[in-house]
Design a binder for these strands. Sequence first.
DNA 1: AGAATAGTGTCTCTGAGACACTATGTT
DNA 2: AACATAGTGTCTCAGAGACACTATTCT
Lengths: 223, 223
Amino acid sequence: MSQREWRPIVTVDAVLLTTDSETLRVLLHRRGSAPFEGAWALPGGYVRPEEDGSTADAVSRVLLQKAGLSGVYLEQLRTYSGPDRDPRDWSVSVSYLGLVPRDRLPEALEDGVALFGVDDLPPLPFDHTDQVRDAVARLRGKGAYSSLPAAFLGDSFTLPELQAAYEVSLGEALDQSSFRRKITALNMIEETGETTQCGSKRPAKLYRLTEPARTFNRTLGAS
Amino acid sequence: MSQREWRPIVTVDAVLLTTDSETLRVLLHRRGSAPFEGAWALPGGYVRPEEDGSTADAVSRVLLQKAGLSGVYLEQLRTYSGPDRDPRDWSVSVSYLGLVPRDRLPEALEDGVALFGVDDLPPLPFDHTDQVRDAVARLRGKGAYSSLPAAFLGDSFTLPELQAAYEVSLGEALDQSSFRRKITALNMIEETGETTQCGSKRPAKLYRLTEPARTFNRTLGAS
DNA sequence: AGAATAGTGTCTCTGAGACACTATGTT
DNA sequence: AACATAGTGTCTCAGAGACACTATTCT
């Protein structure tokens, strides 16, 4: 039971999701080095013990380096492992689910970075296709009983925007009246006092979350 | 972005829960080697790339070696990491939640292996106290909308037994009538055709799960 | 005025909790 | 017969879906 010489590779990957309020999209980048150089893949990289305080730190660092992002909502998804998932060696990859508002990403993404619809992915290396599938499943499942989908929005948002975020997350349309009843009953949001006064039509009240992220008991939508 | 020389330690840990139909109990063992030799801790150990096909394989191997168990229900909980959680080196530990019927464990546990109530733990090394807390939280949460608690029972069981498993898992009493309505409405179980004919009192029908493990939509209990 | 979007009122139905009741075995 | 455990019937109430309605801005 002594320490083994042969330690696995340890990496992190990020399934960073965003939405155009129609479809779920995932951020991919073109790999700049072997293995799979030039292929589209999830942003990821080695855990660096000398500079990372945790795998969460590692994934934040990777997102900053590869997509120029910081302050993104991140939660650990699960860990993938095995002798064959990475051609270099037996490896472990800790996967994170990230949610980010579309407008937090640059309008024109850098070269080698792009958004793909989660149902319209190119072939991905490693087990990245599984990771995207699992991330979407987590969002679909947890979205129904938490404020997770609000992470697709900025600090303040209208109720129609919040509903759209839930609809994309859950993959189904929600009734407007039921949605508002539910959200207000949960005390999940509070008015900022301001309203939209954008282009046209009736202005909407702006809200913010009362707590950064929450889980509740009863469901919201779900078949 | 080249491969680093310094790779973290990779281990697995198992939070193996069982129940005496009153309280949740977790299996601990006395560590036989450094660090923390002699302390009570979760069963765990190094991932061995030369023999394990995945971290799931590693945790199965560890449970077999340290507690003589096989065929246990296991699901990945989450991964813990950092420079300080293990005094030997920067480390990653993939934690698994296991559920096992009490009678699958030997009546008298081996020396150095014992069950502790999850609310009555000795001080544990590493982040094992966190792992137990997170495992119990997972069971409490997921128990309400899945057949997870049935993993505390054998292949066939009575409805009162199933209800007790749910009550221990959720940490609250459930109404008998509502419980049965719910379970039957979900088509989660089917009659085996047999009944208990044990010591005394009215015999109960025996059931088995229609599917090994399931998740459903509506809740069951939960405040 | 009409279009478009924001927001509300109300009916119905399902499902969960409470709890009293019946059923079937043992001693 | 008494008791203990297994299992059922029924009332009520809260919450979700459906959907028609009102409100406020713009052109």
